[in-house]
Amino acid sequence: MLAIGCIALHCMHTLVDCSHILCKRTGSMSLDYAEVLEVALKTGPEKLRRYSRLGKNIVNGFLIFTQFGFCCVYIVFIASNIKEVIHQFHPGDPSIIVYEVIVLAAIIPLVCVRSLSIMAPFSAFANVLTVIGMVIIFQYLIQDIPSVSSRPAISSVDNMPMFFGTAIFAVEGISLVLPLENNMKRPEEFGGWTGVLNLGMTIVMAMYTAVGFYGYLKFGEDVEGSITLNLPKDQWLYMSVKLMFCVIIYISYSIQFYVAIKIIWPKTRHFFKSKSSHTKGEYVFRITLAVVIFGIAAGIPHLDLLISLIGAAASTALALLLPAFIQMITLAGEPSLSSDDDSEDGEMDAEVQGFSRIPKAYIIKNLAIFLFGLLGWVTGTYSSLKAIVQVF
């Protein structure tokens, strides 16, 4: 978990560094993830320039898949936890699909919110609930915790691809890195050893690792897909935690949904002619997408498998594969990597551009990250799809 987190963090820094280089190269104030790949290809080696628009569409495609995947997971998470709570009082409660329909009904008003600023106070409330919920969870995990020697230290190698997808799903936040830096009052404090990015990811990784470590010691290998589903089912304190996280995830749904809508809607709204039809059409479009997401979630109601599939199939590409590729293209498009290569008239010699100019350390590093990500992408996606097929 720590190794994957460190690699993902390095790739976040790589994307930020490439964004700075490309902004300086083109005179742009800021770039988002898709624009970084587009500009890198457009200003990179000549043979690759024709693929700049395709590169942007690929990134946007992965972003849409990932964000909608998060939304699918959120529906299953909320429905599963509410079902557990209701089941304590009504053992003959309906199947999970009924709860997912109820969640969909509650989500439809949420997806019709067109401005994230409206959600700001609710997001702050969700952060408070998160802290309270985590404190309650950890105090339970460390009570009467078994000895480390009571659990197998190493699991089967066959489980690694599934874990890889789950871990990448957890740490993949690279799509939000550039928007965060671009909207900071002091962007210079984002990077660096003691910057916002390192501090935030260190806290996140510490929490993920602690939940995984102590959760495994407490519950062993026979566990559900979420830490909340493993809490005692008959105590009000822990039932309240499940409901807290349902509220948290419900609020977070709008943020994940907003990212995808921001990409898709501008390409769709030209089908609606008048301004009034624009607004009505957007509402219909948002509700339709919410129903489609519900259909996917209802089709794969297994939280752990859904997380692993989305992590391996989409998050791996965004978190590992594309940043390594982007840095290679960006550096290959640099007219000079040192002042010694400047031509006499102050212009860079275009003939020395290309991959041969990239330092070997960068080539080896990016190739290693790319191959590691590719291995995880192939094996994780295959293992997740195989497990889903076996479940059905």
Rank of each mutant, 00 (worst) to 15 (best):
I21P: 01
I300V: 15
K386N: 09
P359L: 09
G354E: 05
R286N: 03
S383R: 07
M205A: 11
M134V: 10
S226C: 06
T268C: 12
A324C: 10
Y214M: 11
W236T: 14
I248A: 05
G133M: 03
N127K: 04
P45I: 11
F138H: 01
W265F: 06
C23A: 09
D304N: 15
R286H: 05
S80G: 14
I4E: 00
S52P: 01
L15G: 00
V389W: 10
G173A: 11
L367I: 09
T228H: 06
V241C: 08
S252N: 14
V177E: 01
S384W: 08
I329F: 08
A79S: 13
N57M: 15
V59P: 03
L180A: 09
T279H: 10
G212F: 00
I86L: 14
C71A: 14
T279R: 13
Q143R: 10
I4G: 00
I251W: 02
R114L: 04
P323Q: 11
I287Q: 05
E344I: 15
R50L: 13
F68A: 08
Y238L: 11
L318G: 04
S276C: 06
Y250H: 07
P152W: 12
I118F: 08
G192W: 05
W377M: 04
I369L: 01
F355W: 12
I310A: 03
D158P: 02
H20L: 05
R50P: 01
M201P: 01
C6A: 13
P121H: 03
